[in-house]
């Protein structure tokens, strides 16, 4: 089964949210879980990025690329970058992979590579 990262679409006003929130930001609907899940698109363009040198102790790599991507549907998300020389505005493609490993758990998130 392919793993997805989901956006949350309000059933009343169709506003999309990522990440999940309890109350719609637009219409403030207050019925529990009135959202449909929609997989986030994988294609987008890189808005801004960094390479981090001082990482939390769980990471065994010396540096980590991170960036904020504007996806093709206009939503934004933060993800890890597997790109040697990122440039603002470049086209990227995401894939859902393990982004953090704790002792007993793996956490999945989006890793972007140049498209």
């Amino acid at each position: 089964m392919a793993r997805e990262i989901y956006a949350y679409k309000c059933r009343l006003c169709d506003t999309m949210h990522y990440p999940f929130r309890m109350v719609c930001k637009n219409c403030k609907q207050n019925d529990f879980f009135e959202f449909d899940t929609v997989p986030l698109p994988r294609d987008g363009k890189l808005l801004t990025f960094t390479r981090v040198y001082n990482l939390p102790p769980q990471y065994e790599v010396p540096t980590l690329g991170l960036g904020i991507v504007e996806l093709e549907n206009g939503m934004r998300m933060l993800g890890q970058l597997d790109i040697d020389e990122p440039k603002a505005g470049m086209a990227v493609k995401g894939s859902v992979e393990v982004v953090r490993e704790e002792t007993y758990d793996d956490f999945y998130g989006m890793v972007f590579r140049s498209a």
């Binding site: 990522y18 981090v52 939390p56 991170l66 933060l78 993800g79 956490f107 998130g109």
Partner: peptide, 11 residues
């Protein structure tokens, strides 16, 4: 949406 990616405040 942020912490699990290894985001820090400097990042």
């Amino acid at each position: 949406a942020e912490y699990i990616y290894g985001v820090t405040l400097p990042a």
